[in-house]
């Protein structure tokens, strides 16, 4: 990936920075320039909003035929996560066995490597999720 393309999304990918429409208060992630509900009324009113890093698994899959750059992680778990603030996002679930993941499982954001531009290139970091476990 081109460096500027990743660099400009760092706040979003590191810290789940999305936007909130000040007109209807709905939260969006990834950020949008226009609120799909308020349209014109939202222009200039989409303000940065840090989303909660917790959510539940809305759906998931265990990938055996990987995306490029994920060959070493096979099998890996991808999920659509329903965040507490409303939006759903697509992200990996790590640090557990596939059998432990269920629709409705509670998850929280962790910070991991997303990929790299080959051995000599930039390393990309950002959000993944891990199951919330009862702490002892």
């Amino acid at each position: 990936m081109q460096i500027p393309r990743f660099w400009r999304q760092i706040p979003n990918r590191y810290n789940l920075i999305g936007v909130q429409c000040e007109n209807c208060k709905k939260v969006y992630f990834p950020p949008r320039i226009v609120c799909p509900d308020c349209h014109r009324l939202s222009i200039g009113k989409m303000k940065q909003y840090k989303l909660s890093d917790k959510g539940v698994v809305h759906s998931y899959t265990v990938i055996y035929e990987p995306a490029e750059g994920f060959e070493n992680q096979v099998p890996y778990i991808m999920a659509i996560i329903q965040l507490e603030d409303g939006p759903r996002i697509t992200a990996q679930i790590v640090d557990c066995n596939p059998e432990e993941v269920k629709i409705g499982s509670r998850v929280e954001m962790v910070f991991r490597r997303l990929g790299e531009d080959g051995k000599a290139g930039i390393i990309y970091y950002g959000y993944k999720f891990a199951l919330v476990k009862t702490q002892t």
Partner: peptide, 14 residues
């Protein structure tokens, strides 16, 4: 979606 490791098949799988 894709950058996080999602494949086309994985989206339909979810």
């Amino acid at each position: 979606e894709s950058i996080f490791g999602a494949t086309y098949a994985s989206l339909f799988a979810m």
